[in-house]
Amino acid sequence: MELSKAVNSSTTIKKEKKYSPLRELLKNWKKQKNALWASLFILLLITVAIIGPFIAPYDPYKPDYNAMLQGPGIDHIAGTDEYGRDIFSRLLFGARISLTVSFLSVFLGAIGGTILGLLSGYFGGWLDRLIMRSSDVMFAFPDILLAIAIVAILGPGLTNVVIAVSIFSIPSFARLVRSSTLEAKETVFVEAAKSMGASHFRIMFQHILPETLGSLIVFISMRIGTAILAASSLSFLGLGASPETPDWGAMLSLGRDYLGTSTHVVMMPGIAIFLTVLAFNIVGDGLRDVLDPKTKNE
């Protein structure tokens, strides 16, 4: 209608100030109060993951049999575990492990899923059926069960956790990208590119992929939370990091024997996992409001 057109068109360009998608994004991002805080927290977390080992007050691996299972105090701000290792230092080291594992697994899953989703949505036909039916099969298993199965086959260890979590991320990414691809495929500018003789590769990566990018970024930020949980669960079950590694999941696993007596041993890594997952989810929600055209209210 003319009404909305008139009002919308008026916001396109302001005089000579040049439009840039990035500036637009930052402007909208500042309006998302919660997500702004959450993203600051994630930034802090990333910093910790990088410089954590240099600022940690204690060696996270070194047992101290004089200070076993101490509660939070002046010497050890987050207390110590059953071997007298400083929990705070272990958390700082653990941030690096948790973030590396989750980022790596989600990015691998996103790349795999995006390629499969693009192919599936763009070409359709038997390829589409093959890819979608395979992911249906994978969807039939609960995520964590699938991850357990994969690690059980590959053997325990952090590398295998990354592989397991990325594999179970692939189908969700494939589905998401496929649906945006189906939509983008019908746009007139894709038709225009076809009429110019653009190759399938060019159409997929130059014209369709950018259209899916918004929802892809939103989904990645959401999946990072899930991946941290999954990796922690695997470590908790003893399938991930070895017990002496300062991984948050592994710390939880060790602490469970002292749940009744020294709650802080479980509480501290628990809180770390909780806050991190929450932050990523809030950021994901905020990104959705800013980026995802489907939920954008014009």
Binding site: T187, F189, A192, P210
Partner: peptide
């Protein structure tokens, strides 16, 4: 052969 489309809003990639 080249084409010109009806909708000048939709036929140009917004990105």
């Amino acid at each position: 052969v080249q084409m010109i489309f009806q909708d000048p809003y939709a036929s140009l990639n917004p990105r």
